[in-house]
Amino acid sequence: MWEALQFGFMQNALLAGVLASISCGIIGSLIVVNRMVFISGGIAHAAFGGIGLAIFLGFSPSLGAALFALGVSLIMGVVSLKSKHRADTIIGVLWAVGMAVGIILIDLTPGYHADLMSYLFGSILAVTELDLWLMSILDGIIFLVILTLYKEFIAMSYDEEFAFVVGVPVTPLYFALLCLTALSIVIIIRIVGLILVIALLTIPPYIAEKYTGSLRKMMIFSAVLGTFFTLTGLAISYYYDLTSGATIIMVAGVTFLCIEGLDVIKRN
C-alpha cells in the first residue's frame, strides 16, 4: 500500500479526495438541512449535458459541466420558487433531459470514444495538477462565501420565514447556495462521478448531524468523515483493483448502514 504513495497520480488522488471532502462537508451540510438533495441530484445529472456539449464543441469537459451545472441550478431555483407544487417533477425532467442531451451530443461527435464511465463514476486516479488548482480555488470561494454569510445562511436554513421578515435577502442567498452547490458538484464529479455525487454530498452530513450541535461543527465533521470515506475507499479500491468512485461510496454507505443499525438497536 505505502509504495503506492510514491506515485504522482496517487498523491494527486489523495489531495483531490481531501479537497472534494471539504466542499462536500460545507455545501453538503447546507444541502441536507435545506432539503435540497433532490435538486442537487438533478444538477449533477443535468451537468452531463454540459460534458456532452464540451466534447461536441471541443472544449474542456469540466468547464462544460461547470457552465451547465450553474445554468441548470439557476433554472431549478426559479422552478422551485415559482411552481412549488410541481417543482420536483420539473427537476426530474431536467435531470433526465440533461443526461440525454449529453449522451446524444457525444454520439454525434465524430470519432469520439470517450471513457463515459469516468464521468459517470469518477476517475480520481486521473486527477491532474490543474484539476487540483481548480479544486483549491473553488474550495476557497465556497469557504469564503459561507464564512462571510454564515449567520445569514443559518437563519435561512433554519427558519426562512423569520429570516425574510428580519430583512435577510433569502432569495439571493438561496440562489447563491445553488451556484455553490453546482460548483461543488463539478468538483466531486472528478472524484466519484455524477451518479454517485449525491452519496458523498449527503452521507457525511447526515451522519455528522447526529453527533453535532451546530451547523459549523456539522460542516467540519462532515469534511472529516468525507476525507475518511474517500481515502479509505481509495485504498481499498487500489488493493482489490475496484472502481474507486464506487468503492468510496460503498465505504460511506456501509458506515451509514452501521450507524443507522446501531440507532435502531439503541432505541429498542
Binding site: V33, I154, Y158, E209, S214, L215
Partner: peptide, 11 residues
C-alpha cells in the same frame, strides 16, 4: 437541525 438555543435567539 443542529442549532442551539443561543443561536436561534441570536437570529
Amino acid at each position: 437541525f443542529p442549532i442551539s438555543v443561543m443561536e436561534v435567539a441570536l437570529m
